[in-house]
Design a binder for these strands. Structure first.
Length: 573
RNA sequence: CGGGGCGUAGCGCAGCCUGGUAGCGCAUCUGGUUUGGGACCAGAGGGUCGGGUGUUCGAAUCACCCCGCCCCGACCA
């Protein structure tokens, strides 16, 4: 490709509305442009990278034995009614009617469609197991799209669905996908971590998320310093540092206008860990929709709302309103577990706690000397607190937990029969009886990966694509306007084209600085500089995007560059 | 949807408080000079000042409504 013909509009200034580096650089380097909220154009360079990512994903999925197909973006409401998600899925599902008044939606995921397809064709256990995948655009009407490709409404996803005769077979495929995902993210040159995850609304049993480690990540993930345990904090198991206190009698103390944990602790001259934090929640969705519950953790801990929701059988929870607090006999800022008219859930670490300070359910008053087993006999104990740095690992009991931020780029689930059953994905088993297929599903956010890679691979000059992903591998930069430099460049360019490399020739009538800056901004791994000076010295410069520098004669420069490319590729993997 | 911020040329911004007929840098176009790190000179084009309504002799500027964007929260690949 000649740069003079390339549609690659780069920007000098960072667009003001882009917050994270990946968004800024992808815009500046001319890889993407925004169409509307959470919806983007992929320009030629961006599409090249996207395709490179897709192809690595394809190769590894194929190698793992999955088969590619392609399902539609538009899906009929009937499928969703059958799976009972038409009502459950919520406003993220973009629904519309066609000219006949027929209700449809844009696919946010494809369990329904694949189940419908497979249910029609699946007859016998002999056809199983089977793993089908696609790389396709999804649409989710996200509440708040942000960070460019990181959280779009329309995005490219690889979604795979496996079907099995039984749970053991599913477990095997789950492991197979787990391993394939490791291969994929390694080939993409990413620092990542697989963590145990909450299944969320998708349902099913086992589940892992794959996170690219980055400060800008939206998720908090935690891992053990000693064993291989790693989990999303939404789900992580750990035990807090022990707290000891003297047992004593209950006593009321006046704490005027002090309701925040820090304020109360400072006012009473104690550590926040001596306090009991009581938060009142309302269940949303699930069998106990609308139920009000109290959740208690130590003052220095936080309630992990997802854990609470799972514990009480709700889809999610929300903090109760002032009116709801009054209804159960307490007031804002001074809630405590005694004499509350609702079920009281307590973090399991509090089972034997004594000498705590808690709200008295009266304005401006706290109680001291709270003994949980004595004073809150009806408490229900469960894992409710959010894991903190330094907690003891809930798995090995030896290491302590460390925290990092992650971008979720993959998620795999053992679904079991949650979709196959309502969608009637049935087959005849070995005994000749009708059976429900057991399913797994495996997602990778392909377009999000593009952003995640940039988050990890950039410097002050721009993007530094891993060789595997780079839109072009080599940039031939012509300097000056001499006929000889131009002719020499063209020769090198053609030689590289013949060698089958993705090469771009910067033949523009621009000053050297502009060409260098653009090559760096767009992250081309290797550049060959062809100028009169180099030609006169019979030594052309080859420079890597990571600072490496070599020289070669005009005759040898192509081979040299190809060799360098190869060794860069190996470093990558 | 709740809270905060913003909307003036392709990009980055000033002007608004105190109303007077729209400006700067970069980019773009023409001509010329230049070419190993975002060149220089001369000239040129490009704006419903997000939209509407109102106040006013007069609105980018003041008021009200709407729309859009960004950040924090709930969602998730």
């Amino acid at each position: 490709m000649r740069y003079s013909k390339l549609f690659s509009p780069t920007l000098r200034d960072t667009p003001a509305d882009a917050e994270v580096v990946s968004h800024q650089l992808l815009l500046r380097a001319g890889f993407i442009r925004r169409v509307t909220s959470g919806v983007y154009d992929y320009l030629p360079l961006g599409l090249r990278v996207l395709r490179n990512i897709e192809n690595i994903v394809r190769e590894e999925m194929n190698r793992a034995g999955a088969q590619e197909l392609l399902m539609p973006m538009v899906q009929p409401s009937e499928f969703w009614q059958k799976s009972e998600r038409w009502d459950k899925y919520g406003p993220e599902l973009l629904r519309f009617k066609d000219r006949h008044g027929h209700e449809s939606c844009l696919g946010p995921t494809h369990e329904e469609v694949i189940c419908d397809l497979v249910s029609r064709e699946l007859k016998s256990y002999k056809q199983l197991p089977m793993n089908l995948y696609q790389v396709q655009n999804k649409f989710r009407d996200e509440i708040r799209p942000r960070f460019g490709l990181m959280r779009g409404r329309e995005f490219v996803m690889k979604d795979a669905y496996s079907f099995h005769a039984n749970a053991e077979c599913l477990a095997k495929e789950y492991q197979n996908m787990f391993d394939a995902y490791h291969c994929i993210f390694n080939r993409l040159g990413l620092k990542f971590r697989a963590v145990e995850a909450d299944n969320g609304s998708i349902g099913g049993s086992a589940s892992h998320e794959f996170h690219v480690l980055a400060e800008s990540g939206e998720d908090l993930i935690t891992h053990c310093s000693a064993c291989d345990y790693a989990a999303n904090v939404e789900k992580a198991l750990s035990t807090p540092v022990e707290h000891t206190a003297e047992d004593s009698v209950l006593n009321e103390v006046s704490t005027p206008h002090k309701s925040a944990v820090e304020d109360v602790a400072a006012f009473l001259k104690v550590e926040p860990s001596s306090l009991l934090k009581t938060l009142v929640y309302v269940a949303i969705g699930g069998e106990n929709d609308g139920q009000i519950v109290a959740a208690c953790v130590r003052g220095n801990d936080n309630v992990q709302e997802i854990k609470l929701a799972r514990t009480i059988g709700a889809d999610e929870v929300a903090l109760a309103s002032v009116e709801q607090l009054l209804a159960i006999g307490t007031v804002t800022g001074f809630a405590g577990p005694t004499q509350l008219d609702c079920p009281i859930y307590m973090d399991q670490s509090l089972q034997h706690a004594v000498g705590l300070i808690a709200g008295a359910n009266k304005k401006d008053i706290h109680i001291t000397g709270l003994n949980i087993s004595r004073d809150v006999p009806d408490a229900i104990f469960a894992d409710l607190r959010e894991t903190q740095v330094g907690d003891t690992c809930g798995k090995c009991g030896k290491g302590h937990m460390e925290m990092s931020r992650g971008i979720e780029v993959g998620h795999i689930f053992e679904l079991g029969t949650v979709y196959a059953k309502p969608m009637e994905v049935l087959f005849q088993n070995e005994q000749g009886k009708r059976d429900v297929a057991t399913m797994g599903c495996y997602g990778i956010g392909v377009s999000r990966l593009m952003a995640a890679v940039v988050e990890q691979c950039n410097d002050d000059y721009g993007i530094m694509w891993p060789v595997n992903l780079a839109p072009f591998k080599i940039s031939v930069i012509t300097l000056g306007k001499s006929e000889t430099a131009f002719a020499a460049s063209e020769k090198i360019y053609n030689e590289l084209l013949d060698a089958g490399v993705d090469v771009v020739w910067d033949d523009r009538k621009e000053s050297p600085g502009v060409k260098f800056k653009d090559a760096e901004l767009t992250g081309i791994p290797l550049r060959i500089v062809v100028g009169d000076r180099g030609l006169d010295n019979n030594a052309l410069e080859i420079k890597t995007r990571w600072g490496g520098k070599e020289e070669a004669t005009p005759e040898a420069v192509c081979q040299k560059a190809l060799d360098m490319l190869q060794s860069l590729q190996q470093e990558n993997n």
